[in-house]
Design a protein around this nucleic acid. Structure first.
Length: 586
RNA sequence: GGGACCGUGGUGUAGUUUGGUUAACACGUCGGCCUGUCAAGCCGAAGAUCGCGGGUUCAAGUCCCGUCGGUCCCGCCA
C-alpha cells in the first residue's frame, strides 16, 4: 500500500510547483469531463484538486472508477494552475496535483447524506452516522476549537502554578444535588458507586492535602433531563485554590477569559468584567443569568401607580407585590394579535395578566389610559425612558412572578425583534447568591449552590433567625445569558459545616455517614479555600456560535438520553446481572 | 411527569386545513454525452405505499386513538 504521505490536502501552494507528492484522503467530489477528470481530495486540513489526464492510461482508468468517500492515495506532481483557472475559495486553489499513480485504499458505500456544509440534514440522521457528520468541516471546526480551548486552559493553569490531578470516576453516592448515575458493585452485592456530579469533595480534600492550586478538565455526570445546553455527561474545568477570597478567583478567571477571547475569537476583553448582585439581576432582568447584549431592563412603577384608579395595580402594591414594566422600542406597531400572544405567553408563565401600552404623542393606546392622568402618564414614560412609538409591557403580581414573567418576555421580545447582536460577547459576574432555597416539596431548605458553600460574613447572624435571607460567597460567570461557570468560597471548619448540615435538616448521623471523611479532614488543618467550575461544553458552544452543546461534543446523546449511533443504553444479559447481584423489577 | 412542534424515495422539503385514480420538487445515486471544471454542464433512468399499530370510511399520506423516535420548553439540573 502507498502509505508514505508527503503532504496534507491543505498545504500545497504555488511554491511547491514541480514537487513530487503523495496525498491521501477522501474523494470529496468527482468532475468527469469525458476526457479530463478532476477529483477534490479531502482530509481534515483541506481540499486539493487532483487531475487525471486520459494520456496516463492506467491512472486514468482508476480515476474513472472513483466515487464519493472512497479513500485513496495519489502520487503525482504539483503543477501551477493556468492564470485563468485559479480557485481563490480554496487555500490550495492555485495549484493542482497531476496524478501519476493512484491506489484505492478503501471503497465506500454512498453515504446517507452528502458530506457538505451547505446540505441540510436532520440531527437524528447526523447522530446516527456521527462519524460521517464529523467529516463535515463545520463539525471539524467545532471540535478543533474545543481542542484549542483545552490546550489554552492547560497552558494557562500550568503557567499559574496549578496542578492537574485526576479524581475518581467511581465514588460514593451523595444525598444532595442532582440524581446520581449508579454503578453496581460486583464485589459488594447491594452496594453502588456513583459517577461524580462534580469532583467537589475531592478537590476540597486536595486543598487539605496542600495542593493549593488544582485544576482538572473532567467529565461529570448528572442523571437529569436534557436540554440544548445540558447533557447527562459533560465536561467541566474544575478549579480550586487555597488561601484566597472571591477577588483572587475573579482575577484569575478574568485573565483566563482574556486569553480565550484573544486566542479563540480575536477579541480584546476589557477588564474588569462587569458585576451585578443576584438581587439586582433579578430586579432588573428577572434572571440570575441575564443576557446583557441588549437592554429592556425592568422598571418598577409601584410608587407611581399605588394611588391610581386601576384596582389591579393598587391591590397589587397594597399586597406587597410589584408592578413593573419593560419598554420595547418601536413596538407600538404590534398588531392586536401580537399583543394577545404576549398576554397569552405571560399567562402561560404564571402571571395573572399583562397590560400592553402603546405610547403615542400625547396619550396611550391602552385600556389603562383612562386610569391615569396626564401627569402620571408622563412620569411613567420618563421613568421607563419610553417615547412615542414604543410599547410598554406591564405586569402586576407578587414580586417573584413579576420578575420571572417580565424576564422571560424580555428574552422572547429580544429574539423576535432581533435586538441580540450575535457577534457580541457580554460577560457578567453575578454575585451574592442566596445561600439557601426553600424546597416546598421536601419542606426544608436546600443549598442553592452546594452544602459546602460559605455564608457571607455579614449575614452570619441571620443563619438561625432568617436562613432564607442569608447570602453566600457564591458567584456565577454569565456569558450572553448562559451560565458558563459557578463557584464559591467554601466552608473549611468543621463546626460551620455541621451547622450547615443542620440548616439543611440533615441529621448528624446522616451527615457523618455521607460526609464524615470531609469533616474529619477539616480537623487536620484545612486551609481556607474556594474555587469555580466552568461548563466547558457551553463555553465551546458559545465561542463556536452554536445553539446546542451537541455541536461541540463528538458523540452526544439525544434529548431522551439515547445514543443513536451505538444504541446506549441497552439491556444486558442475565449473566451480567447475576454477577452484579442485580434483579430487575418487573 | 407535563406542554408545543415535527416524522413522506438515500437527504431536505411540498402535499395533510377541504379524504378521491399515476405522491411533486431539489440535491444525491446510476447510465449516456462531454478535455479545464471546482456546488461542472447537458440528456436519460431507478428510487418513497407516507415512523409503527389500530380505528372511522366505499376510499386515509390526509380524520381519530395509541405507540415509537427527534427538537424546543416547564418541572428537574446542589
Amino acid at each position: 500500500m502507498l502509505l508514505d504521505r508527503s503532504h496534507t490536502c491543505g498545504e500545497l501552494r504555488k511554491e511547491n510547483d514541480g514537487e513530487k507528492v503523495i496525498l491521501m484522503g477522501w474523494v470529496d467530489r468527482q468532475r468527469d469531463h469525458g476526457g479530463i477528470i478532476f477529483i477534490d481530495l479531502r482530509d481534515r486540513y483541506g481540499i486539493t484538486q487532483v487531475v487525471f489526464n486520459p494520456s496516463a492510461k492506467n491512472v486514468y482508468a482508476t480515476g474513472k472508477t472513483l466515487r464519493g468517500e472512497f479513500v485513496i492515495a495519489v502520487k503525482g506532481f504539483v503543477e501551477k494552475r493556468p492564470d485563468d483557472m485559479l480557485n481563490d475559495s480554496l487555500a490550495t486553489g492555485h495549484i493542482e496535483v497531476v496524478a501519476e499513480e493512484v491506489e484505492i485504499l478503501n471503497v465506500a458505500k454512498t453515504p446517507p447524506f452528502e458530506i457538505a456544509d451547505n446540505v441540510d440534514v436532520s440531527e437524528e440522521i447526523r447522530l446516527k452516522y456521527r462519524y460521517l457528520d464529523m467529516r463535515r468541516t463545520a463539525m471539524q471546526r467545532n471540535l478543533i476549537l474545543r481542542h484549542r480551548m483545552a490546550q489554552i486552559t492547560r497552558q494557562f493553569f500550568d503557567e499559574n502554578s496549578f496542578i492537574e490531578i485526576e479524581t475518581p470516576m467511581l465514588m460514593r453516592s451523595t444525598p444532595e444535588g442532582a440524581r446520581d448515575y449508579l454503578v453496581p458493585s460486583r464485589v459488594h452485592h447491594g452496594k453502588f458507586y456513583a459517577l461524580p456530579q462534580s469532583p467537589q469533595t475531592y478537590k476540597q480534600l486536595l486543598m487539605v492535602a496542600g495542593f493549593d492550586r488544582y485544576f482538572q478538565i473532567v467529565k461529570c455526570f448528572r442523571d437529569e433531563d436534557l436540554r440544548a445546553d445540558r447533557q447527562p455527561e459533560f465536561t467541566q474545568i474544575d478549579v480550586e485554590m487555597s488561601f484566597v477570597n472571591q477577588e483572587h478567583i475573579f482575577r484569575l478567571v478574568e485573565e483566563l477569559m482574556v486569553r480565550y477571547m484573544d486566542e479563540i475569537l480575536g477579541i480584546k476583553l476589557e477588564l474588569p468584567i462587569q458585576r451585578m448582585t443576584y438581587a439586582k439581576a433579578m430586579e432588573l432582568y428577572g434572571s440570575d443569568k441575564p443576557d446583557l447584549r441588549f437592554g429592556l431592563a425592568m422598571v418598577e412603577l409601584n410608587d407611581l401607580v399605588e394611588s391610581c384608579d386601576f384596582r389591579v395595580f393598587v391591590d397589587c402594591v397594597k399586597n406587597g407585590g410589584a408592578v413593573k414594566g419593560i419598554s420595547v422600542p418601536g413596538a407600538a406597531k404590534y398588531s392586536r394579535k401580537q399583543q394577545d400572544d404576549l398576554i397569552e405567553l405571560a399567562k402561560q408563565l404564571g402571571a395573572k395578566g399583562l397590560v400592553p401600552v402603546k405610547v403615542g404623542d400625547n396619550d396611550w393606546q391602552s385600556n389603562l389610559n383612562k386610569f391615569f392622568d396626564e401627569d402620571t402618564r408622563k412620569q411613567i414614560i420618563d421613568r421607563m425612558q419610553a417615547s412615542n412609538g414604543d410599547l410598554l409591557l406591564i405586569v402586576a403580581d407578587n414580586r417573584e412572578m413579576t420578575n420571572e414573567v417580565l424576564g422571560n418576555l424580555r428574552l422572547k421580545i429580544a429574539q423576535d425583534e432581533g435586538l441580540i447582536k450575535e457577534d457580541n460577547f457580554a460577560l457578567l459576574w453575578v454575585t451574592d447568591f442566596p445561600l439557601l432555597e426553600f424546597d416546598t416539596e421536601e419542606e426544608r431548605y436546600v443549598a442553592r449552590h452546594h452544602p459546602f458553600t460559605s455564608p457571607s460574613d455579614e449575614d452570619l447572624h441571620l443563619l438561625e433567625s432568617a436562613p432564607g435571607d442569608v447570602r453566600a460567597k457564591a458567584y456565577d460567570l454569565v456569558l450572553n445569558g448562559t451560565e458558563i461557570a459557578g463557584g464559591s468560597i467554601r466552608i473549611f471548619k468543621k463546626d460551620m459545616q455541621q451547622k450547615m448540615f443542620k440548616l439543611l435538616n440533615i441529621s448528624d448521623e446522616e451527615a457523618y455517614s455521607k460526609f464524615g471523611f470531609l469533616m474529619d479532614a477539616f480537623e487536620y488543618g484545612a486551609p481556607p479555600h474556594g474555587g469555580i467550575a466552568f461548563g466547558f461544553d457551553r463555553m465551546a458552544m458559545l465561542f463556536a456560535g452554536r445553539k446546542s452543546i451537541r455541536d461541540v461534543i463528538a458523540f452526544p446523546k439525544t434529548s431522551s438520553a439515547i445514543s443513536l449511533m451505538d444504541g446506549a443504553p441497552s439491556p444486558v444479559g442475565s449473566k451480567q446481572l447475576k454477577e452484579l447481584g442485580v434483579k430487575l423489577a418487573r
